[in-house]
Nucleic acid binder design. Structure first.
Length: 417
RNA sequence: CGGGGAGUAGUAUACCGGUAGUACGCUUGGUUUGGGACCAAGUAGACCGAGUUCGAUUCUCGGCUCCCCGACCA
């Protein structure tokens, strides 16, 4: 894409009402626009990143047999009353509104109930199980206090996957499978080493649930980490009994602040029972389905990636999620021949299926470099008087900034390396 | 929800009970051109309502919105 055509623009100052680094940089670079507290629009660059994150998640969910669907945002009151999760005294972060024809609806903050009802229509035998079903959808939570930019919004994108099994053993196999796939997601996003599978409170059907906590100074949660064992415990559940369960000693734990980037829950029959989701075993006897739920938020992940991968000059996107593969800068200084050479390079890259943001604007070099640093595309190519004279193009990484001259004949190979 | 703070141009800010100033941006012209250039001329602004006052962006009250700390976070 030609940057001269991009409707967004970078800015030097962040709005005064944003304090979180992720929101400041994403707004300055033109990735997001704040609509109200905790509610952000995703602009062209931001949407590209969000879609890339979702793609990584989708690939990993599909790889373990997840089947994608898309459920509704609007939720019916009667369904949620069946599981006793409609009342504001039970779930206090509902957004609710009225139908013109009378009656209330809610905006989904999670989707156990509607999916259980959908599965009810299709699951009737042990032969229909196990299943993994997921969606990537906007969630709404009426948080009393939104904060931390896009890391804790009132409207956010979430991948929520649900497992349906015939037995506890089968459930546990699925649970482990999903946990492993989450580790792959975080590793592909470049935060694998900082992200710990963390023991947290379980609820009625299991002693523990697991959170995936990414160590980050601005995190809301406090966890205790064992780096060697690659395990952590949430402060909420840390006590002598829990440490004994996990074979951890106080001495090997380090306190860290962290952000929850994913969580996985055993649900047992919490939803299948009240909603009547059962299967017949081989003997023709009915049993409630054993369920699990698994959440992971692309919008929050985007914020976390900015918090983790940024320097004074701006964002440094991991390759997997960068809005474009390369940022091509034409440093022409008004010289038409150099501009034409850069145009030609842009066409050549596109013909080779390289996603390229081409800074063809008529502005000075300094502004282009500063904007490129801020936007954070990992690989930069520069076409200038120098590079044209030397018969190549200057290539550098956003991470370290060192530029080297690359011959055009080697360029595509180098970019695919 | 408890406590604290703030609403002035697209953005960041200043001053003031009496014509709202600056910087960035944007427009036009000129000079410049490898790390956010320079000159000139333009463009654009007081959250809403009530009260006090001859006069309110400024003071008072109410509302709305935003931010921070805490609580909360299936």
């Amino acid at each position: 894409m030609r940057q001269s055509q991009l409707f967004t623009r970078t800015r030097k100052d962040a709005p005064k009402d944003e304090v979180a680094k992720n929101a400041q940089l994403l707004i300055r670079a033109g990735f997001i626009h704040k609509e109200m507290a905790g509610v952000y629009s995703f602009l062209p660059l931001g949407l590209r990143v969000l879609n890339k994150i979702s793609d990584v998640v989708r690939e990993e969910m599909n790889a373990i047999g997840g089947q994608e669907l898309l459920m509704t945002t609007l939720q019916s009151k009667e369904l949620w009353e069946q599981t006793d999760r409609w009342s504001d005294s039970v779930v206090d972060n509902w957004f609710k509104t009225q139908l013109k024809t009378g009656g209330e609806v809610g905006l989904g903050f999670t989707h156990e109930e509607p999916l259980t009802r959908i599965m009810h229509a299709y699951v009737s035998s042990y032969a229909d199980l196990p299943r993994l079903v997921y969606q990537i959808q906007w969630k709404f939570r009426n948080e009393e206090r939104a904060k931390s930019g896009i890391m804790r919004g009132r409207e956010f994108l979430m991948k929520d996957l649900y497992s349906f099994a015939t037995s506890q053993k089968e459930h546990e196999e699925l649970y482990e499978k999903v946990a492993k796939s989450y580790e792959k997601v975080f590793s592909r996003l470049g935060i694998g080493e900082k992200t710990y599978r963390t023991f947290a409170s379980g609820g009625v059907f299991s002693k523990y649930s697991h959170e995936f906590q990414c160590v980050l100074p601005v995190g809301e949660d406090t966890i205790y980490v064992s780096a060697e064992k690659k395990l952590a415990v949430n402060k909420e559940v840390k006590n002598a009994e829990v440490l004994a369960d996990l074979g951890l000693s106080e001495a090997e734990l380090k306190e860290e602040k962290a952000v929850e980037v994913g969580n996985i829950f055993s649900l047992g029959t919490r939803f299948s029972e009240p909603l009547g989701l059962t299967f017949k075993d081989k003997g023709g006897e009915d049993h409630p389905v054993i369920m699990g739920s698994y959440g992971l938020g692309p919008t929050r992940l985007m914020g976390v990636l900015v918090e983790v991968f940024a320097d004074k000059a701006g964002i440094i996107w991991p390759k997997e999620v960068a809005p474009f593969h390369v940022h091509l800068l034409a440093i022409a200084g008004g010289d038409e021949d150099i501009q034409k050479e850069a145009d030609r390079m842009y066409e050549m890259l596109q013909e080779n299926d390289i996603a390229v943001l081409y800074d063809d604007r008529d502005v000075r070099a300094g502004e282009k470099f500063a904007d490129a640093d801020l936007i954070g595309i990992p690989t930069r190519l520069v076409v200038s008087e120098k590079t044209v004279a030397a018969g190549g193009v200057e290539m550098s990484e956003r991470k370290n900034g060192k530029g080297t001259l690359v011959a055009e004949s080697d360029l595509i190979d180098r970019l695919h390396a």
